[in-house]
Design a binder for these strands. Structure first.
Lengths: 368, 368
DNA sequence: CTGAAAGCGCTAACAT
DNA sequence: ATGTTAGCGCTTTCAG
């Protein structure tokens, strides 16, 4: 029934079949310029008959647009990024774009490599959750007109481009304030930061924030999210008259420290915290596992609050009270910003802030 | 310091700088044919100096290879697929390939569209977790030499290509057998299938499996995973002398039914099940929420077992006993199979089966 | 080992 | 409105 065809049909084939020139065929198919209704119909029919599919590669080479977006995140297995990525792909597909995915595990080297590879693939734009918000030289180079970039989840002040985040400081302060309102004074914060700054020449903003951790983290925080959440935590503590805001602050490094261990350290303090705030759901998993391992009960023995409304937080007993981020919307908004930047070209950087919601469940109680 | 450059450096630029012809420059850069060490070095230096980056689009147009793989899955927010995707991207990147991502939500139409778009983008191969294992006409067309496809998680017998799965039937039977060993007789299975067959002309294999659900699911199961897990469930039940294997079988449709509601129905039966088997972690979430809503305790009042070792299953109390699938390995293995197919061309279909592990935790107890 | 020339499939000026 | 011509950046025969 079907005709043999070794080679896919091309524009010349369609043009011949329709009895028009290649340009007319091209115009009719790509829907630009002016074509007579008659010719247009003949071309459409011929294309249909031959099963013509445009060679996007060739088209991209001419137009300079691939209708492909690059997404560079820490880890697709982290529910936050999975949600964000879902939002990104949905928004992208709706707009006729495909999505190229890369994981960095918060490693700056991996991020640089990913960005380079994706650019080589001629993505029309990049959504990046940067491993560092100060070491952004590799991104700065792109922002200068090479390839639009939009930052997601994290804001790099030195980078003149859009960023889509939540109000981390406010959300964090709010969460801590709720713990304080419940009567807590010894409130811990457990967080993880990306790779250490590698000392490259990177005219970036300053983020001094020493953390009293066991050994590491003497340098600056590389990720704005962490900085801001810690800032909110400190602010709320200070506002409550708690002077030593860093007594229960634990900042680990993504690859080198396990949040469970950090928590274990906290719990073995002479005066252990009565509440723990985890800055994401993966960290919360570690916190809970340390709490469980020690036989402590939530919330009777210790209160727990976390960032990110992961599905499991509704199923654990007690159900976890969380700071919910609009994950899919973050992704969708980032794509929207990126597309505007792609279509309208350079424009003043916008920082879009989406609202979080504190979801009160059962993991907070007054300290004993 | 840096020179102004509006236009990216091209091969002619490098050739000129190195004082050789374009062909020689191309050979040196792409590392093929023969080039004198001297010329090769001069070209490398020139490329370095000009910051030359090959135009992958142009290269792909000639070579016919894009070093891009397409991944078509149900939902990246499902931890199973997130893990699989992580395995895929890692393996792909290691081999020098990028990954284009598409979600289908188990919708056949979305899958067809995704496959078409990805092919138009000239991916070198496709990893697909098909929404249906019988309606695979759109994939069959590709397998005929157009674009290598490897099936993931699900096996379509009618499709002459590789599939990477676990032994679903065996794993399922094993899990049910453990429930039986604990003394259960009224064991429920809650599962979800993709979109209904659309009656297209698709010479596929037959999968008859009626399910006693409230309203839907009178047709065949479209997904092999579901079929096999149900088969294992039935086999184990029958082997234990339980005749009516479908009394507690609940098969919902992905978009139209909520596992929590299905479970709620089961629990309100005159003789409710004493154990529930959920065929993935998302379904388990629904099952648990229904169980919790009814105030039942696990495992005292009801035992629960699920497929997929999601992170949260270790944190809930009681910790959930699960059938763990090697998620990342599934993805990595699929890429490996795909790459062999891409490099070595057509070959007899292989069905690769990876081992599952039953992880005994605390959600199973004898019935009261 | 190297260079000249052809051409992948398509779009975009420029004529007509 | 349509056809002619050029050319995107690269690889690849084919001569030399």
């Amino acid at each position: 029934m079907t005709t043999n065809r070794r080679r896919a049909a091309t524009i010349p084939d369609v043009a011949r079949e329709a009895g028009v020139s290649r340009s007319t065929a091209s115009r009719a198919l790509a829907d630009y310029g002016s074509v007579s209704p008659d010719a247009r119909e003949r071309v459409r029919a011929a294309a249909e008959k031959l099963g013509y599919r445009a060679n996007q590669l060739a088209r991209s080479m001419i137009t300079g647009r691939t209708h492909t977006l690059g997404v560079v995140i820490a880890d697709i297995q982290n529910p936050f990024f999975a949600g964000v990525t879902r939002g990104i792909t949905d928004a992208a597909h709706t707009a006729g774009y495909q999505v190229l995915l890369a994981n960095t595990d918060e490693d700056l080297g991996a991020e640089r490599a990913a960005v380079k590879t994706l650019c080589d693939k001629h993505v029309d734009g990049l959504v990046v959750a940067p491993a560092s918000t100060t070491e952004v030289g590799h991104l700065a180079a792109l922002v200068e007109g090479v390839c639009p970039v939009v930052l997601l989840d994290r804001h790099a002040p030195s980078l003149p481009t859009d960023a889509v985040t939540v109000d981390n400081q406010g959300a964090s302060a709010d969460a801590v304030r709720r713990l304080i309102a419940a009567g807590h004074r010894r409130i811990a914060l457990v967080t993880l930061v990306g790779s250490e700054p590698d000392g490259g020449a990177d005219g970036g903003a300053e983020h001094g924030a020493g953390a009293r951790t066991g050994e590491a983290a003497s340098g600056p925080f590389p990720i704005s999210t962490g900085v801001e959440r810690v800032a909110g935590y400190r602010a709320a503590l200070r506002a409550a008259g708690i002077e030593d805001t860093d007594a229960y602050l634990r900042v680990g490094t993504f690859h080198r420290q396990d949040p469970a261990v950090l928590t274990e350290e906290l719990l073995s303090l002479p005066e252990p915290p009565t509440a723990v705030f985890a800055t994401d759901s993966m960290i919360a998993l570690g916190v809970l596992s340390a709490v469980n391992a020690r036989g402590l009960r939530v919330p009777e023995d210790i209160s727990v609050v976390a960032f990110d409304d992961a599905e499991w937080t509704r199923v654990v007993r007690p159900r976890l009270s969380v700071v919910a981020q609009p994950v899919q919307e973050l992704g969708a908004e980032a794509v929207r910003a990126l597309l505007t930047r792609i279509e309208r070209g350079a424009r003043p950087p916008r920082h879009i802030t989406l609202d979080t919601t504190f979801i009160t469940r059962d993991s907070v109680a007054p300290p004993r």
